[in-house]
Design a protein around this nucleic acid. Structure first.
Lengths: 234, 234
DNA sequence: CAGAATCCCATTCGATACTG
DNA sequence: CAGTATCGAATGGGATTCTG
């Protein structure tokens, strides 16, 4: 109960709604997720609930303080909720709200746009979740329409399943040892990036990057061919 | 030439690429346009080149300093260029690059998403450009496919022409007294918002909000019916 | 591990004044 | 009009410490 600080009368201190007085939806979006790190936190939760330390580990450079603050304001904005997992686990996780999950197209469009910049550097590290989301962004829906498959994408400890069907490709964290038609095991997200976007041949990545492919290789080739980075401008 | 400041060795001070070390396109987008005000500046240029003072006037609360800084970093990022208009005018304007114009879908998706928030307040002021962009966002492309028209949208001093054709609706600033099939004159952007999104009847806005409609009113009704805000979540 | 609380410096912002 | 210069205040955010 500190009562000092008489230099400012503190009329409506902050909470969102402070930055831009603008009815434009874009401006309002920026009030909600326009602070540094906010949108990347949303991105990390896009494929399911995560714990504080998991989010922090995926965001190189964020401090505990800032992550705490951002999680608070995102919760307040209704983008995510904090939830206590059932009994035995009993661990706290952060999960997007229904509306929070609807931010995916916006995240994708931003990524698609930035990827077309002449100055985008794709050699930096990448989180497993952002690699998965980029695949959902860059998939050729036309070509994928005639391709049904269940594909395992295993990056280090992170295990995902992509269900390709009718041109759509939802991705979830793999519950357990689910059966898949093809499985890609990679030590790092960037290995998959080299394969899907760099079109580096399987053999090379298997020899030098620790890639392991299970299942029909011709099918794997067809799957990889579904993904392509948008053309640069200029 | 101040040479003090030995407290920091200043290795690679800034320039974009500083914030997030992340190959994810979304993260890179945030490096480029994630600073406060940046994306709104891009928005204001989305319908054509503008002068410093015009941008400033559309962004309530931005200071000259910050606008100058943002224009510089956006130019550096390749999002916009500064250009001197031909001879008689000889005035400086800022214009998006080809790639800068490609940001529109990202801006739209952010706006569409935010508009679905339960806490979005649509009663705040709105710039003419953001009203126009929102119309491009909220148009029902299905319904618009069978509707060809040239529509004038005149907000105070700002004059726009929307060319509805094949479900698309490019909007440009009106060059002069171009002929249109319908024209809406409104003193404020919010008047149009009330009409297109609030579905306030023409008569009421004509009586109390200074709305003036030229052309076939039945056609105008059909046109207005093409626009609708996305449903709130919840 | 998840976070709250402090400390404290660097950066950023906005207001104002000034200039070509 | 289109910025530049300066200054004080607010904010940001990293590091560290503490707690359940």
């Amino acid at each position: 109960m500190k009562l000092q600080k008489e230099t400012k009368v503190d009329e409506r201190p902050r909470k969102h709604g402070k930055w831009y007085a603008d009815a434009c939806g874009t401006a309002f979006a920026l009030e909600l997720i326009g602070e540094r790190w906010s949108l990347l936190i949303v991105r990390e939760l896009m494929l399911g609930p995560r714990r504080f330390s998991e989010v922090r580990a995926s965001l190189p450079g964020i401090s505990a303080k800032v992550l705490t603050e951002r999680l608070e304001s995102l919760e307040e904005a209704g983008v995510l909720t904090r939830r206590k997992l059932p009994s035995p686990a009993s661990v706290q996780v952060y999960e997007l709200t229904e509306w929070g999950y609807l931010a995916e197209p916006a995240i994708q469009e931003l990524g698609r746009w930035a990827a077309r910049s002449p100055s985008h550097d794709p050699t930096l590290p990448l989180s497993p979740v952002s690699m998965m989301l980029s695949m959902r962004t860059m998939i050729d829906h036309q070509a994928a329409a005639s391709f049904d498959a269940k594909v395992g994408l295993f990056i280090g400890e992170d295990r995902f399943i992509a269900r390709l069907e009718g041109g759509m490709m939802p991705i979830e964290r793999a519950s357990e040892d689910e059966s898949v038609e093809i499985a890609f095991h990679a030590p790092l997200p960037s290995t998959l990036a080299a394969m899907f976007y760099g079109k580096v041949p399987f053999a090379e990545l298997e020899a030098h990057a620790g890639l392991v492919i299970e299942g029909d290789r011709a099918l794997a080739e067809r799957f990889v061919a579904l993904f392509e980075l948008p053309p640069k401008v200029g």
